[in-house]
Design a protein around this nucleic acid. Structure first.
Lengths: 129, 129
DNA sequence: AGTGATGTGCAGAATATACTGCACATAAGC
DNA sequence: GCTTATGTGCAGTATATTCTGCACATCACT
């Protein structure tokens, strides 16, 4: 359900990284210069959508992420895979491996990961989403 | 540069899969029921943005993709990686591997791919796009 | 109490997205 | 030539996104 716009995603990124913060603090860490009122309008939208919550401390509101980064990430990846790879995660992997984004070390690490997980269906569920 | 909206992406998907087509044909293959005027408004937007081009054949316009699927895909993946993984493709892979999206066979295939590609810069280009 | 800095609330506004509707043009068959 | 599909052009609407501006509240300090 995320489908964050660029502006929303930047805000979420700051909150995911730094936790609970008030607007002026988010503003400082926002990836590009942004004016306070503009930022606050993003916060309002995210609040409406339920992706963040806020809490009054003194005279200021402190905002924090409700939607978890991992959830948003997984959903986004799924959407990309569905849209571009006919639902097959393999095509995404192939693209990643073929592109310059993966160094040789990363490939080695990747194989290690692939080895570590497999035999049989993993018992531990990952149903937190 | 893509940042396709859901509607735009659906249109691009049809054009990527089936090549040059006129609106009524795209409409038939659109993933969900869509009215002709609605579809045409997407086409107009995509045309404005330069993602598609059109050519008159008889009385109808035939539309085809200008932006390649591979390009849009790569860019989208990069955006996701930048936004969610601090630019590291590895985090994306880790997520894919840990999720239920990859079967055991896919992991085996994955390792094969990781093995097949590595040492040095790959000589074979994949520039057919 | 008065002043300034910092926050908030609210009311727009410009553009983009996601549509709808209808008049008009063109091609094909009678 | 006339009618009927089929397709286009254009204008308009509703909502979302991305902002801006300003009045007002609160806190700290003197």
């Amino acid at each position: 359900m995320p489908r964050f716009t660029p502006g929303e995603l930047s805000v979420m990124g700051v909150l995911w990284e730094h936790g609970e913060m008030k607007p002026s603090e988010i503003q400082e860490r926002y990836p590009e210069p942004i004016k306070n009122p503009a930022l606050r309008s993003y916060l309002t939208i995210l609040l409406d959508k339920g992706h963040i919550s806020r809490r009054k401390v003194g005279k200021a509101y402190y905002y924090k992420a409700v939607t978890r980064q991992q959830s948003a990430f997984s959903e986004t990846v799924r959407e990309v895979i569905d849209a571009y790879c006919g639902g097959s995660a393999q095509a995404l992997l192939l693209n990643l491996i073929r592109s310059e984004k993966l160094s040789e070390e990363e490939l080695v690490e990747l194989k290690r990961l692939a080895d570590g997980e497999p035999p049989g269906p993993p018992k531990r569920r990952r149903k937190k989403s």
